[in-house]
């Protein structure tokens, strides 16, 4: 046990250090290099600093870093909850259909209104952003409510999974219908939204976003005992005194809330939620969800920051869309993990 706890604390310490390092890199690196001394002056000491640097840090890099940190943490934890609840290594935040619901909400505002009301969405400016976030939250919230209702009414965990996936297909089909009848400019905007971004929020809002993602992510540790039991299967969990329906309700509510928030403010970020839980399990080598959740939180934040860094690598004219980077990093991780698991399963 001591040996094992030793490993877990080493992994967590390293992950925390890595996270801090990546936060720093996200502030320093970019198309313009900003020295650490300047960053210190801008953020902490309040000394006289370069105006341009101050602008870049406070208006762009800091909010982007904070948002990436919160989003990564939320997606890592949400993905872990889903993988354990459904006992499926390919589950992730998107399996409940919540990000699809979010996308549908956004598509409705971006495409449908444009079609019917005869204006393109970009012309709305700030109000447009607000409408996008709002519609996304509504879409995600409706789907989450529906899933929670279903999970309460229907017994099996598998049915919830299947219904979640089907809701995903349904909303994709509605979205493609909306796309088909929409002007090209709106469709282009919608596609951009769908590629995800950590840079849609101002400093104040970024801080807010960070709070409502980081706090629930850490609170999810209160679900660690139910999750440990559910990993044994519903029946063993029930025999060990777990109220399955209630546990499932809370797990879905937590994971759903985190996914809904992230998708609404950043767009549907893919792969972080699937890959990070595997990394957490592989590195910490524990089955205790108390540590797995903390690990997934740290590694999720670190992964998102790494992706953000790659997306705006120095020397590039334009930022890459975040989803192309997450897929590029996430897919190999998932393949590697499945490969390793396949080998282990042969022993089981």
């Amino acid at each position: 046990m001591i040996h094992k706890l030793g490993r877990i604390s080493i992994v967590m310490t390293l992950a925390t250090l890595l996270l801090a390092f990546l936060v720093l890199l996200n502030l320093v690196l970019g198309s313009i290099h900003i020295p650490i001394s300047e960053i210190k002056a801008i953020l902490f000491t309040g000394d006289e600093a370069n105006r341009i640097f101050e602008n870049i840090i406070l208006k762009t890099r800091l909010p982007q870093t904070i948002v990436a940190l919160g989003a990564g943490m939320a997606l890592g934890v949400s993905g872990l909850l889903m993988q354990t609840l459904f006992r499926n290594p390919l589950a992730g935040p998107s399996v409940l259909g919540i990000s699809s619901g979010s996308s549908l909400g956004v598509a409705f505002v971006m495409l449908f209104t444009g079609n019917i009301l005869g204006f393109t969405f970009t012309s709305l400016g700030g109000w447009g952003d607000f409408a996008v976030v709002f519609s996304s939250l509504i879409g995600a919230g409706l789907v989450l409510a529906l899933i929670l209702f279903i999970s309460h009414k229907i017994g099996g965990t598998l049915s919830v999974l299947i219904i979640g996936v089907m809701i995903g297909y349904l909303s994709s089909s509605l979205v493609s219908l909306l796309k088909f009848y929409s002007p090209e400019e709106d469709v282009h905007n919608y596609v951009i939204w769908g590629l995800g971004s950590f840079s849609r929020l101002t400093s104040d809002r970024a801080l807010m976003f960070c709070l409502i993602t980081v706090i629930p992510s850490l609170l999810a540790t209160f679900l660690s005992k139910p999750l440990n039991l559910l990993a044994l299967g519903d029946r063993y969990a029930a025999n060990l005194g777990l109220n399955i329906k209630r546990a499932r309700f809370f797990i879905i509510a937590f994971a759903g809330f985190l996914t809904a928030i992230v998708t609404s403010f950043c767009g549907p970020i893919i792969f972080i939620g699937v890959a990070v839980p595997h990394l957490a399990k592989l590195l910490s080598k524990t089955s205790n969800h108390f540590y797995l959740i903390l690990n997934a939180a740290l590694l999720g934040a670190a992964t998102a920051l790494l992706c953000n860094l790659i997306a705006r690598m120095p020397g590039m004219e334009q930022e890459m869309p975040i989803n192309s980077v997450t897929a590029f990093i996430g897919a190999p991780v998932v393949i590697w993990v499945i490969w390793k698991r396949r080998k282990e399963n042969r022993l089981e």
Partner: peptide, 9 residues
């Protein structure tokens, strides 16, 4: 039970 349980780690 007869359930084949696979708990990672």
């Amino acid at each position: 039970l007869t359930d084949r349980v696979i708990v990672p780690n």
